[in-house]
Amino acid sequence: MNTTGPLLTVRDAVKHFRGGGRTVHALNGVSLSIAPGESVGLVGESGSGKTTLGRLILRLEQATSGSVEFDGHDVTTWRESRMRRLRPAVQMVFQSPYASLNPRMKIGALIEEPLKLHTTLSKDDRKKEVRALARRVALSEVLLERHVNQASGGQLQRASIARAIATRPKLLVLDEPTSSLDLSVRAEILSLLGSLKEEHGMAMLFISHDLDTVHAICDRVCVMYLGRIVETGSREAIFRAPLHPYTRTLLSAQLSADPRVTRERLPILGEPPSPLRLPPGCGYAERCPIAETACTTKAIALTAKADGDHSVACIKT
């Protein structure tokens, strides 16, 4: 076991979906690493490839090229039977708890399932553990006997989290876990995730289109655009001193709930690009206010900036 290196390393991940005579370029060379206990936010708009990257890490999608390493093992080509032994260590919470929890199972059984599969606990001990997990995520024990359609979105998302942390994973991938929830419930779930992060010291990959959410919970942020990471850095670096024009536009489009806070709004040009047709140069060039000819001709790599942990894929910064 590797104890000092990164927990997760994704190298040059490429994912193309082919079908109907078209190719969707969902991921176009993404590299990312997450240290043990670190929480990384993956932000981007629809079509940026952030969900595909999450599913690729979980091996729900097979990479077209590139590799995924977990704890020093290259798991890119592992068979599902071998992957299963790794599953307790890498868990996932999905966007919609209604869609991601089996509607025919009781909530208690859903939380118990990972314990059943990966531990040798007796039935009684499992039930005890399920109740402890329910308490931990502030889920009323009454709900354990109910089905998915008898609980609210917030309650179900708590159950999803309980299910995901049952095996005490080292990495939790969360794909928009709060975006289908009401504001006060969203705050409650984030508060729960925040406390779990401190308590268990597990690493998180938090996928979201909402910068406020990512700002609230992540140590480091990766900004994705058109299947590439265009900027990555510490939370402070990204939110205080964003470099990439896209990151700046994204930040300026965030709406503060305080009417006194008015961010300077950067103009937004054109339409989000289609992942069907990749431009040769920078993906953002055709919408970028400061683009020049060089931006449209050659691919632009992530380059580290002077202060170390801040990289950006833009030749103009």
């Binding site: 979980l58 299963r84 599953r87 999905f94 966007q95 991601s100 089996n102 599969l117 999803s160």
Partner: peptide
Amino acid sequence: DFVASAVVTGNP
């Protein structure tokens, strides 16, 4: 997603 969730949970 619930099938994906079953896979991620490690169901045979």
